[in-house]
């Protein structure tokens, strides 16, 4: 933030809101970092779990998913993965697709598909957790 020297065209209200020209401030950047930090321990746990489960029969895997710790962490993992992924792919699209309608259409498809895929994953975990 520059000092109020009177040489800026930005209004004082605009500066105090801190949302910048993109109108969303640091939300995108911060959301991506927060989910990244969350995924570090989540994926360490997930990798250990998958090695332990490798080759296990259906009943063992279902029992693992059903346990409260696994169910909660799996849902947290799915939420972090798909939120992070939607933000990341959005940036890639913004960098390489320069036709406005194509860019917008792709971003909308990515966001809706990510939400849908996350919901399928969460519902699968909940069905098992609540005894499907």
């Amino acid at each position: 933030m520059s000092a109020d020297t009177g040489k800026t065209l930005r209004t004082r209200l605009g500066r105090v809101r801190g949302l910048g020209s993109a109108k969303e401030g640091v939300n995108h950047w911060w959301g991506q970092r927060l989910t990244a930090i969350a995924m570090v321990p989540l994926f360490v746990w997930f990798a250990f779990s998958l090695v332990a489960l490798a080759g296990a029969p259906h009943a063992t895997v279902v029992a693992w998913i059903r346990s409260p710790v696994s169910a909660v962490l799996l849902i947290a993992l799915l939420a972090a993965v798909f939120y992070h992924l939607a933000l990341g792919v959005q940036v890639v699209i913004e960098d390489y697709v320069h036709t406005e309608w194509r860019k917008l259409a792709l971003i909308i498809i990515v966001k809706l598909a990510s939400a849908l895929a996350a919901l399928v994953g969460v519902l699968s975990v909940l069905r098992i957790a609540f005894g499907a």
Binding site: H58, V61, V120, G121
Partner: peptide, 29 residues
Amino acid sequence: RITGVGLAFGALILVAWLAAAAAGGSAFA
């Protein structure tokens, strides 16, 4: 960036695995 885009597709495998586990023994097999 390339691994990030690739992993976006990999996330779908994770979802497919969970959905198969929820669907039952034959889907999981």
